[in-house]
Every structure is written in C-alpha cells, then in structure tokens.
Design a protein around this nucleic acid. Structure first.
Lengths: 243, 243
DNA sequence: CTGGCGAAGATTGTCGGCAATACTAGCGAC
DNA sequence: GTCGCTAGTATTGCCGACAATCTTCGCCAG
C-alpha cells in the first residue's frame, strides 16, 4: 500500500539534472566545493558552467539574496562565511519556525502522514543500531521535512529551506557529541507521538525541547572546534582579508 | 538628554533618495503605485527609472527573491498578489519571529532602550487621544522596530522586514475594528512592562497574546472586506487571468 | 458565428564588447 | 628599508543587438 520510499515529497530532482547555473552554483557552494570567503569570478564560473556571464550574474544575484554569498560593488562575489554567532541566530529562527510548523502538523496530520512518520522513526532506530551516523542524519532531516509537508505554511517552509542551506557547515558537528543520537531519537519520538495524539501544545513543547538541545549541542560543537583549533578565529580573519 | 526623536534606529533614509532602481521599484510596489498582478515590462521600467534594462533585470531578480513579484520564464514579471491565506501564513511566521525577538529584548534591554520604549508608548497614548489613527499605526510599527533593535538576531530582523513589505496591503484594515486601538495599546504596554521587568517568558507570552489578537483582527478585516465586496474573489481571478 | 491556423508584433533571455573601477607590481625618493 | 606614486592588469558594471519565445490579430473553413 505505502510506497517503498517513506516520503514522496519534493526532494531534489536527481533524474533530470537541470543545467540552471543558479542551482548548480548553489549546489557547489552548499556541498563545500567552494571554500568560505573564496572569490567567485564571473568569467571563471562562466566557463565552468558553460553559461554566459549574464546568466552567472543573475545566479549571483539570487544567491546573494539567499545569503549564500556576499557581493561588494566592483569587488565581486565571494562565498559567505557564516560565523558561529550567525549560526546561533539561524538556529534560533529555525527553532521558532519549526515549532510553528510542528504545531500546525499536530492539528492536520492524516493517518497516511502518521504512517510515514512512523516508518521514518523505525528506520532511524535501525540506523542507530547499525551505528550508521550519516544515514541517521539524513533520516533526521527527512523527518523534519516530512513534518513540514504536513503543515500548511509554505512561507515558513521556504524560509527554513533557505536557512538550512546557509548553516549547513555547522550541521555536521552536532551529531558527534557522545550520546546525542540516542537522546535525539527519543526527542523525535516524543514529537511524533504528539503529532499522533493531535496535540499542538505538546508537539510545540516537544519540538522546543528538541531544538533547545540542538542549540546546546551546537554550542558544544563550536566550543570543541575552537578548543581543537584555537587559531581558527585568526584564520578566519586572515581569509577575510585575503583577496 | 534624550533625543527629540524617540528612536534613532535604521529608518528609511529619506534625505538622500538613492537612485538604485531596485529600491525605487520596491518602494513603488509597496506604496501601491503598481496594482497587484500588474505587468512589469522591462523596457517600460527602463525608461521610467532612467536605467538600462540590465539594471532593471537585476532589480526584478531581487524583488522576485523577496516575494514582491513573480516571474515566469519568457512571460515576464508582475506584481505578486498576496492571497488572504498567504497573509495568514505570513502573520503566523511574524508571530513566531516577533516572540523570539521579544524574548531576546527582554533579556538585553538597557535603560536607554527602556526610556525609548516608554517615550513611544506615551506618544501612542497622545495619538490615541487625538484619534490620530494613522499616527498611531506609524508609532505601532516604530515600537515593534525598536524592540527588534534591542534584540540581537539580525537574521530574524531581516526576515521580518521582508515579510512586512509583502503583507503591507493587509496592514491597513486591521486598525479599523472598533475598540481595537485601545486594546492594542494595552497589549503593547504589557509587552513593554515585561521588557522593563527583564522577564523573557512574560514578554514572550505578552507578544504572543498581542499577535494572536492581530491575527484574529486580520481574519475580521478579511471577512468584512469579503462581506462588503463579495465579488472580490472573482475580481482577483479575473485580474490573474488578465494580461 | 465559431473555432482552428498562421503570420506579425511584443517581450524576454542571452551574448559580445566597452567603459569604469579596484587591485597589483614596479619604480623612485627619502 | 620603507613609503608613496604610477602604469598595468584584472574584474565588474553597463549597454546595445540578436535570437527565442510567447501573445495577439487577422484569415479562412466549416
């Protein structure tokens, strides 16, 4: 009855890889193909993507609005470096918006939605048992996206997608905290349980607690990163000055 | 000691009107100079603003990302019509973000911030006594912006500015509800009191209650608008089809 | 009179070139 | 050796023109 894939929502269309320079450049940036603060010379991108410089300029304008790059007049564009402070701001906004969507999802979830969520949670259990951290992270993101699709606020969803692409550099450190995946899974189960119970208040609280812990873990990840490489702040300012 | 103007935050720079086509076009759209669904022909805008078509295209790309216009391939750009449903989504997101900022402001407000807020509230009392509804609305927006400036989340502030420009068409009907300005002022006083008390939880709750009432009033305004002009839905679809 | 069909008009998308600006390297003076 | 100036280079911003596409209008058959 249900599909093999637990979700059929709008995932990245991988079959027909659109040659849109904007999407390709965005993908290259979020995948880390360009370093933070790296210059993005229009002519180079033009030959790289086989598009005219006009299309590249349009793509840069979009990515500037999305916050992935910064443009200075007559000085060109470069990959935006998200500071730890800004990562915190983004996570706080994400917190507020996810709570809103969780609340909406708890009110609107159908039996089909609930079944999908349960499949995802069950698969998360498997990945955790297999110590498949990467797979667990992917399912984590998938669960959140599925909750978004249950809610009915497209405005908030679009903002969350943009925020996610901005802060992707900080997403990987958060799962490395000892014991964090187990705790994360329990929190996700609480969220799903609240959706099943159609209780918006409880779901809001469960999502708030979950993302509060994510925020704490983000703090921990940044701290431990600083501890391991105390010169990183210096390196960042050096890169900022570099041309 | 304190300035004559209660706020010195980033208001719209009116002295040196930048000739940037993007800003001018945005201003023209939010001020209602262009009707919703009206076509924006690049050549016309080019002669209107005295800029080349390239600059106009860049401006359209930005405004598309901001959600003020919609662009269809080979079919051009037009002013985006925000539906009542979308206005609701926007107001819900605004609700979530303003609560976040109110919480932050309650933690961080200095004595100077508090003084500014009290001046604004006092002036709101005056405007209300004089039945100066327009002036009251402006102070209303000013108070919210001042609270934003106390908080420390630039990401959320930028989003709120963008959302405000999108939903400006629905801002005017909400103050016309009988008794609403008085209630609104009481709610604002509760918010400011919570900031003065440095109590984030109470401030969050006060802002939530305030914006919950705004949401109700928005519903009332849309309903009464529909009641007065039951053909507006038809007119909208007609405009959508129009070229 | 209505509905399909094709050509003309209008508009957008893209490309190349040119001027304006910012960065760099080299040179000379102190 | 260091600082300031200047010429040269690299890159962006802008403008015109052309191709691609969509829309509209006129025509004609039924």
């Amino acid at each position: 009855m249900n599909n093999l894939a637990p979700t059929s929502d709008s995932e990245t269309p991988r079959v027909r890889t659109i040659s849109d320079p904007c999407d390709r450049l965005r993908e290259a940036i979020v995948s880390g193909e360009f370093q933070p603060n790296e210059r993005l010379v229009e002519a180079d991108l033009s030959v790289r993507f086989g598009a005219g410089r006009t299309a590249i300029r349009a793509a840069l304008a979009v990515l500037d609005q999305e916050g992935l790059i910064v443009r200075e007049p007559h000085r060109g564009a470069r990959v935006r470096l998200i500071s730890a402070r800004e990562a915190f701001e983004i996570e706080q906004v994400r917190n507020a918006l996810e709570r809103l969507l969780a609340r909406s999802a708890a009110s609107r979830a159908t039996s089909g939605d609930v079944a999908d969520l349960q499949v995802i949670v069950a698969t998360m259990h498997e990945r955790l048992r297999e110590a498949d951290t990467l797979g667990y992270m992917q399912l984590n993101a998938q669960l959140h996206r599925r909750i978004w699709s249950i809610s009915d606020n497209q405005v908030a969803i679009k903002m969350l997608v943009t925020l996610k692409s901005q802060s992707i550099r900080f997403q990987y450190g958060t799962i490395l905290r000892p014991g964090r995946p187990e705790q994360s899974l329990r929190e996700h189960e609480a969220i799903v349980a609240a959706i099943i119970a159609h209780d918006p208040d409880v779901c809001d609280a469960a999502m708030a607690e979950h993302l509060g812990h994510v925020l704490e873990t983000l703090q921990w990840a940044i701290d431990s990163q600083e501890r391991a490489r105390p010169w990183s702040a210096l390196r960042e300012s050096t890169l900022r000055a570099q041309r």
